[in-house]
């Protein structure tokens, strides 16, 4: 089957957007990604988006999002109620299968409108868990405590991951957090959500992202250095956090194996770790060692525009390959409580 390349990427983040609505966050990234792709918008063969209506508390926000795309005459279009990395997966399948030669993928969300931590916690089992109202951070913090107790993660590793993210955030114009800080300094700060400190948790971030994909021939025509998706897979664990091993990320491990992460060295990995212990767990699950630069963008710990965070990991990893900073990169997206669902993508240039 033919290869699929990433030919353009755009992102937008805002710590607490009060002027633009969700659709108005999508307009600039779609405009930019389509322009930079070199493919006329009318010729893009498929459109797929990722968003979550509960972020804004209104129905059919994904339909409103199409106002930012332009859907007349009618276009082939789809949507996932998930991070747009899963929309990219669907678009990749559509191009691989020959249904389209190109695709626009975008994600958007405004978590700042409500209590995103509470909303994402409602992804838990509605019978026995959600009525207790654990937040997404509560569930992640519990996973961190299990990992620490098992000796697979320690607080210093978490602080080092958080400090590295915050330092990287200073150089990333899309980061909403940036700080010249050491692990020692973070360890001296209070534990707020045991065992997590504030810096161990992703900041509330509004935003959007868009990627244009093209089949091999078209990608070569429009792009001087397309970045090929050479492996992509996603896996899911049981929704019951008490029925899986929270000291490992089995579904990320399985997705990484299916995507072929271990077939060759990885130069750069962009991981959707919303909590610092997840950086450590995901490194191990994906099998990326000390030779891999992890989250040069700072990752989700410095900008977490929910529903775009995973797509941005793919975009950032592709940008690193395209710029020649990495020969082979891995991007990871996550969904569900405590890394329940994981998508892994391998990116390479010629």
């Amino acid at each position: 089957m033919r290869r699929v390349g990433i030919v353009s990427f755009a992102q937008l983040t805002s710590p607490r957007e009060r002027r633009r609505n969700e659709v108005e966050l999508v307009i600039p990234v779609v405009q930019e990604a389509v322009r930079a792709s070199g493919i006329p918008k009318a010729e893009i063969g498929f459109t797929c988006s990722g968003s979550c209506d509960y972020l804004a508390g209104g129905p059919f926000s994904f339909v409103a999002g199409l106002d930012a795309v332009g859907a007349w005459p009618p276009i082939p279009e789809s949507h996932v109620e998930a991070d747009a990395a899963w929309a990219l997966y669907e678009a990749w399948l559509v191009i691989r299968s020959g249904e389209a030669d190109s695709a626009l993928v975008y994600g958007f969300g405004k978590p700042s409108l409500g209590d995103v931590d509470e909303i994402l916690g409602l992804q838990a089992d509605p019978y026995t868990v959600a009525p207790l109202w654990p937040s997404a951070t509560d569930l992640a913090a519990m996973a961190a405590s299990a990992a620490i107790a098992a000796g697979v993660v320690d607080e210093r590793q978490m602080a080092e991951a958080a400090a590295a993210a915050r330092r990287a955030g200073l150089a990333n114009p899309h980061a909403v957090v940036g700080e010249d800080v050491t692990a020692e300094e973070l360890l001296a700060r209070p534990v707020t959500r045991p065992p997590l400190r504030d810096a161990d948790v992703a900041p509330v971030t509004d935003g959007s992202a868009a990627v244009v994909l093209a089949a091999e021939d078209l990608a070569r025509r429009v792009c001087d250095r397309p970045v090929w998706i050479t492996g992509i897979a996603h896996r899911i664990d049981t929704p019951s956090p008490g029925a899986r091993d929270l000291t490992d990320v089995a579904s990320a491990r399985s997705a990484a194996a299916a995507a072929g992460v271990g077939d060759a060295p990885v130069d750069v990995a962009e991981l959707s770790a919303r909590h610092s212990h997840e950086v450590v767990l995901l490194r191990r699950a994906l099998g990326v060692g000390s030779g891999t630069v992890v989250n040069p963008s700072g990752g989700a710990l410095v900008a977490d525009p929910v529903m775009s965070t995973g797509l941005i990991r793919i975009g950032e990893a592709a940008a690193a390959v395209r710029a020649g900073d990495a020969g082979r990169a891995v991007a990871h997206a996550a969904s569900g409580p405590a890394l329940q669902q994981n998508l892994v993508c391998v990116l390479e240039a010629d």
């Binding site: 633009r20 609505n21 659709v23 108005e24 307009i27 600039p28 779609v30 405009q31 918008k41 409103a64 199409l66 106002d67 930012a68 795309v69 332009g70 859907a71 007349w72």
Partner: peptide, 11 residues
């Protein structure tokens, strides 16, 4: 108004 042209997506 929605900030974009729903036919083309242009601002």
């Amino acid at each position: 108004p929605r900030g974009s042209d729903p036919m083309t997506g242009a601002p």
